[in-house]
Amino acid sequence: MSGDVDGAPKSRLLRSWAIQRRVIGALLMREVITRYGRHNIGFLWLFLEPMIFTLGVTAIWTATKSVHGSDLPIAAFAVTGYSSVLIWRNMPSRLVDSIAPNLSLMYHRNVKIVDIFAARLLLEAVGVATSFMVLTLFFAAIGWLNLPEDPLKVIEGWLMLAWWGMSLAMFLGALSHRSELVDKFWHPTAYLLFPLSGSAFLVDAMPPEFQKWILYLPMVHGVECVRDGFFGSHFTPHYDLGYMALINLTFTFLALTEIRHASQNLVPA
């Protein structure tokens, strides 16, 4: 009898998880079709879009012989920098003002705000991760960069960047349901953070007084960790993933709190 009692919560949990997976899967497919359509190359744009952006930056840097504070190859620097920055910059842009267009879905009992957010975040993460991996293998094959010295550090740094992007995106996405000013302020803020994110420079190449301030930005730690995994023996990395995890946890808590508030004040269309 006790076994049945103990198994009941577990059974309900498994059923809930199965429903959650189906809901997110359906929303994911809906998002792919809505965003990329069924024509031309369709969902392949999910991977090609960030690849084209990174390739463009690499080409511009190579043509202008840009200096980034080290003697590392331009291709290696661009792939690690711009592929990393896309993950935290694109995610908030996909979630800000994303609740209102999906209000009709809220008539379905099993569809929640967090499900819509999860589908969009998963789609963005898969796209950027795939382009990052393909570009790394492609540039390594043609001799423009070497494969990572420590792949685990690359994965660790990238996952921390993805966590930062997701927590920030969920917070801003839910907050934008309170005020449309979030959308107005996020885009210029993203442009201002872009040159400070560590994508275009090494922290070690900066003046010591500047290093102290720039390391307050959590994404800088993630980019430095990714680069440490790629070519850590060629420069001195500066990062603290413990600090970054603390910031990520804080924003995750704020995001979940704001999502709860948005859910309680939701009026389906």
Score class of each variant (00 low, 15 high):
residue 157 G to N: 02
residue 186 W to N: 12
residue 239 Y to G: 06
residue 209 E to S: 14
residue 48 L to V: 07
residue 61 W to T: 01
residue 80 T to D: 14
residue 108 H to E: 08
residue 84 S to N: 08
residue 135 L to G: 04
residue 266 L to H: 01
residue 49 E to R: 05
residue 252 T to C: 12
residue 77 F to L: 13
residue 161 L to V: 02
residue 71 D to G: 15
residue 217 L to I: 04
residue 115 D to G: 04
residue 101 P to D: 10
residue 91 M to K: 06
residue 86 L to I: 09
residue 263 S to F: 03
residue 235 F to W: 10
residue 219 M to E: 00
residue 204 D to L: 03
residue 80 T to I: 08
residue 12 R to Q: 11
residue 16 S to R: 13
residue 50 P to F: 12
residue 48 L to Q: 04
residue 176 S to H: 10
residue 51 M to T: 08
residue 37 G to Y: 06
residue 124 E to L: 00
residue 88 W to C: 05
residue 79 V to I: 15
residue 6 D to S: 15
residue 22 R to E: 15
residue 196 L to F: 12
residue 142 I to G: 02
residue 221 H to A: 06
residue 174 A to D: 11
residue 190 A to C: 11
residue 159 L to W: 02
residue 211 Q to I: 04
residue 91 M to Y: 04
residue 252 T to Y: 12
residue 138 F to L: 14
residue 240 D to N: 15
residue 103 L to G: 05
residue 185 F to D: 06
residue 32 V to R: 08
residue 201 F to S: 07
residue 63 A to F: 05
residue 63 A to M: 04
residue 118 A to H: 01
residue 65 K to S: 14
residue 125 A to Y: 00
residue 105 L to R: 07
residue 75 A to D: 10
residue 217 L to S: 05
residue 40 N to M: 06
residue 59 A to K: 00
residue 247 I to F: 13
residue 125 A to D: 01
residue 64 T to Y: 09
residue 213 W to Q: 09
residue 104 S to P: 01
residue 222 G to D: 03
residue 110 N to V: 02
residue 210 F to H: 06
residue 164 W to I: 07
residue 27 L to V: 00
residue 170 M to R: 11
residue 99 I to Q: 08
residue 217 L to A: 08
residue 209 E to N: 11
residue 120 R to G: 04
residue 148 P to H: 07
residue 50 P to G: 11
residue 220 V to N: 03
residue 53 F to A: 13
residue 159 L to I: 02
residue 177 H to W: 15
residue 240 D to Q: 06
residue 43 F to V: 15
residue 18 A to P: 00
residue 198 G to P: 04
residue 20 Q to Y: 10
residue 249 L to D: 05
residue 154 V to L: 10
residue 256 L to V: 05
residue 228 D to C: 14
residue 128 V to A: 03
residue 160 M to A: 12
residue 233 S to I: 05
residue 268 P to W: 06
residue 73 P to E: 14
residue 49 E to C: 04
residue 94 R to W: 13
residue 147 L to C: 03
residue 230 F to I: 07
residue 16 S to F: 12
residue 191 Y to K: 09
residue 244 M to N: 01
residue 235 F to M: 12
residue 46 L to H: 03
residue 19 I to D: 15
residue 4 D to T: 09
residue 48 L to K: 01
residue 213 W to E: 08
residue 182 V to Q: 13
residue 147 L to T: 00
residue 66 S to I: 08
residue 35 R to P: 01
residue 21 R to A: 14
residue 109 R to S: 14
residue 15 R to K: 12
residue 111 V to D: 02
residue 38 R to K: 10
residue 118 A to T: 02
residue 205 A to Y: 00
residue 130 T to I: 09
residue 188 P to E: 15
residue 24 I to Y: 07
residue 269 A to P: 00
residue 237 P to W: 11
residue 211 Q to W: 05
residue 256 L to S: 08
residue 108 H to R: 09
residue 48 L to C: 07
residue 224 E to A: 12
residue 95 L to P: 01
residue 57 V to K: 07
residue 148 P to E: 13
residue 241 L to V: 00
residue 211 Q to L: 09
residue 61 W to E: 04
residue 268 P to E: 12
residue 106 M to R: 01
residue 36 Y to K: 06
